[in-house]
Amino acid sequence: MSHDHAFFIALSYGVTAIAVIGTIAAIMLDHRRLKKALAAMGVTVAARDDGQHLD
């Protein structure tokens, strides 16, 4: 494997890993923030919304 090719392969996989992990992290952080905010309002995520007309 020539040095040049290894660089481009590593960069490809690196950029992909950063994009995918970044997306996962962003979604999970968003989820945690939403859960906290909902808990502060006195609602759990698992709670049914029946009768509360939240949706």
């Binding site: 995918v20 997306t23 996962i24 979604i27 999970m28 968003d30 989820h31 939403l34 859960k35 905010a37 909902l38 309002m41 609602v43 995520v45 919304d49 007309h53 939240l54 949706d55």
Partner: peptide, 27 residues
């Protein structure tokens, strides 16, 4: 499968965001 998992996670966030928005307005 990665896309499907991320999409579902993201949809869940949107549903929760909507509820939060609704609760904030009600309050």
């Amino acid at each position: 499968f990665l896309f499907l998992a991320l999409h579902l996670m993201s949809i869940r966030n949107e549903i929760l965001r909507r509820r939060l928005d609704r609760l904030t307005r009600l309050a």
